[in-house]
Design a protein around this nucleic acid. Structure first.
Lengths: 248, 248
DNA sequence: CGTGTTATTGACCAACATCAAACTTAGTGG
DNA sequence: CCACTAAGTTTGATGTTGGTCAATAACACG
């Protein structure tokens, strides 16, 4: 038995196909080509980088298990976390088109990724345009998430940002079966949260206390519960529309 | 002669093809298909919306002339400008995949767009996957710009943000032939700049004064000049890598 | 149990926001 | 060409959100 986790026993190609299905229709050809893709499994310890900002990448990653995040560094050591990636994510298909990684990909908790050479992916896409369509679709939603985050960081208060972030992660985890009705567990420190929302750790801490006082969330460690979705939603000025893709 | 400008005399299909060429190789088939695309020219007065957040769109836009911008509104009337679009931009190909517009597209100055029905575009893509590739490529760069903006708004000082923004717009305008060696004209108010960088108008004003005092920029109205690119670049913590696409 | 990471507190401070008014500039119509 | 207007810029005064620093308390893990 592999040591890490039951899921790593699952064949990555199968997982890949089922991930693609959540984004669009996968034809028999698409599926056959995916099964031909070379995939190199990589166990990533918590906090270890999978790829680094500034490097030229030759492989894409597919998240099999664990939480990952992407970030950029700015002058003076500041860190901006761009987004968190859940299992089934393709954190860097985009790198097929950019010269150099413009962000780093790091494991938040220990996890597994499958690495796929660019060349192989490009070949597959060339043969099955439907695949490109699905990738595009996935990256479009990712961009929508990014736009919403920009609006948060640029124009929302700390209180709203935190509530909004919880709403978003809840919805995203729910759709992957990683959350129950009113509860989800995010292995993220207050420091990470700050670097995600453009706030200091201390201020995140105080904002969380405020949210708890107001009875909007209840947290025990990494585990978060809310009693009233509607109140959380309003507190965060959250409208899930940006997360929906076209039903074609 | 059309009244608006010489360029509007140019056929939009030709313009579209040449815009695509700046992103990637355009095959003869691609070109032929583009020429079949129905395009509806639309003159847009300054400040008029082309498409609105929350609406379901059925057409994409292609910018022929003028400056456009995209923005989101947040609770309480705050506005976050996401990005500025120059001529040749495709501000919303992404909408092919999202259920609902998650931002509005507005003319900054009077301009012209060509509107292309989604259905037609989807057909063309289905027949010529190379087109999809180019669109994808364009939207990947756009996403890179967004990520960099998020890093700015989240983790850079006002002074850095403004300088960084000037660097980016300079580079982007330069590559479209809209800027000379040390000079570019951006028809953007201080208020717009604030809504782009997550700052108040007043603070933008004071930051600009600072940049002028420091001799980093010289502005006359909408027209901006810098004397020392290197200093501007450093002031803005700007590294143009995120703007480059793969040389394939 | 110790040890290192994360959370929490308090005191203090700075960046940036808000408000309101004055000043400039660019357009517009006469 | 000038007066008039509206939009944009600039300024000052003042307020607030959120940052920084530094210490302590709580955990989590081996």
């Amino acid at each position: 038995m592999p040591k890490l986790c039951k899921q790593s026993a699952l064949d990555p190609h199968g997982r890949f196909v089922s991930a693609l299905r959540t984004w669009g229709d996968v034809s028999a050809l698409d599926e056959a080509l995916v099964h031909e893709l070379p995939m190199r499994l990589q166990l990533v310890p918590a906090q270890e980088e999978v790829s680094r900002e500034g490097e030229r990448a030759s492989e894409c990653s597919f998240v099999l298990e664990g939480f990952f995040f992407r970030h950029k560094m700015v002058a003076g050591g500041g860190r901006q976390i761009l987004t968190f990636d859940l299992p089934d994510a393709l954190p860097d298909v985009r790198c097929l088109h950019l010269a150099v990684n413009d962000y780093s990909l790091t494991a938040l908790s220990a996890g597994t990724v499958a690495r796929i050479p660019h060349a192989a992916l490009r070949d597959a896409i060339a043969q099955a345009p439907g695949l490109a369509d699905i990738f595009w679709c996935a990256s479009m939603r990712e961009a929508a998430i990014l736009r919403e985050r920009l609006a948060s960081v640029g124009r929302r208060t700390a209180y709203q940002r935190v509530a909004h972030f919880f709403c978003e992660m809840y919805v995203r985890m729910k759709e992957r079966g990683m959350a129950s009705e009113d509860h989800f567990a995010l292995p993220i420190t207050q420091n990470d949260l700050g670097d995600t929302l453009g706030l200091s750790t201390v201020h995140i801490n105080r904002t969380l206390q405020q949210l708890r006082e107001d009875g909007i969330i209840v947290s025990h460690g990494k585990s978060h519960r809310f009693t009233d979705w509607e109140r959380l939603r309003q507190a965060g000025d959250f409208d899930p529309a940006y997360l929906s893709l076209t039903a074609r």
